[in-house]
Amino acid sequence: MPHQQVKFYQTGTLTVGNRLLDKAQRTVQATMDRSNSLDSGHRACQGCGEALGARYAIDAAMRATDNQLIAANATGCLEVFTTPYPESAWRIPWMHSLFGNAPSVATGIAAALRVKGRQDVRVIAQGGDGGTTDIGFGALSGMFERNDDVLYICYDNQAYMNTGVQRSSATPGSARTATTMPLGAEPGAEFDKGKNVPLIAMAHGIPYVATASVDRLHDLEAKVEKAMSIRGARYIQVFVPCPLGWGSKPADTVKVARLAVESGLYPLFEAEYGELTSATKIRRKLPVADYLKLQRRFAHTLKSETQLARLQAVADNNIRRFGLIDEQGD
């Protein structure tokens, strides 16, 4: 009989590790000697998606650069919970900056390395969605426009969590925050406001833009690795649920992220030089309500048919626009 390969790997690439896969296909997180760039003892809340996303991304970048990495960090949860002076949970060269100037600081580090002729050391800037999409937006746009050799990673938890859950320009329509209470005719954050920074980054024509999520580790690591193989300005936005700000269970962080992706509310894609190049397909499409019902910030939407319909329309639009479902099926 003809020789055929066993193609099925029990959990495929869905789990963090899989002993049936080739070593090269396994994740950084599955290795015993991962760098644990963000170590234990940090003060993030239980089930923090940002702490998880940051370790995923930075560990992957560490492996991609052979541990030659410097990071600049915008003020925000990520800074406050990792580094209450003089203690730090970071195990990489790491530099504090203000809320709004992490891109500029990173640009400076990259310039200094260029002057010193250190091609091998790479630079990352990172921050939350507030520091990225609002406060640091001018600096970020400048970094893109100059095509500085920096990978900027935005951990997107869709509001200012550190200061008490205020709306940011990444907060989705209808979400409850301290400043968008679920009151009145249109409870929660208004629809059709805010900005989509990955698309804005693409508009700068930079070499690489991607979105990722903490529930898709293989996908996330591949995107970080790809980014580190490119020189110039790059941008990755990682979806990181926040149990405290979203009113979800700490144990459900990865699940919430998974449902955001599977419902189509958080499209995962890649773009190079302003052109979309790939989209991560939805495995089993789910209604947005499955995602919303795990979070108190959306509790009111389940009682409002109009809001539910609008959120579903957002998801359906994403699916169409980014091609999140294969027409032929898989």
């Binding site: 029990q10 963090v16 590790g17 599955a30 234990s40 702490a51 370790r55």
Partner: peptide, 19 residues
């Protein structure tokens, strides 16, 4: 069956993989 999920998803790096 050692899929490494727990080891991966812990936001606190509070799991040791024993090999």
């Amino acid at each position: 069956f050692e899929c490494d999920n727990c080891y991966g998803v812990c936001p606190d790096n509070a799991i040791t993989k024993l090999g």
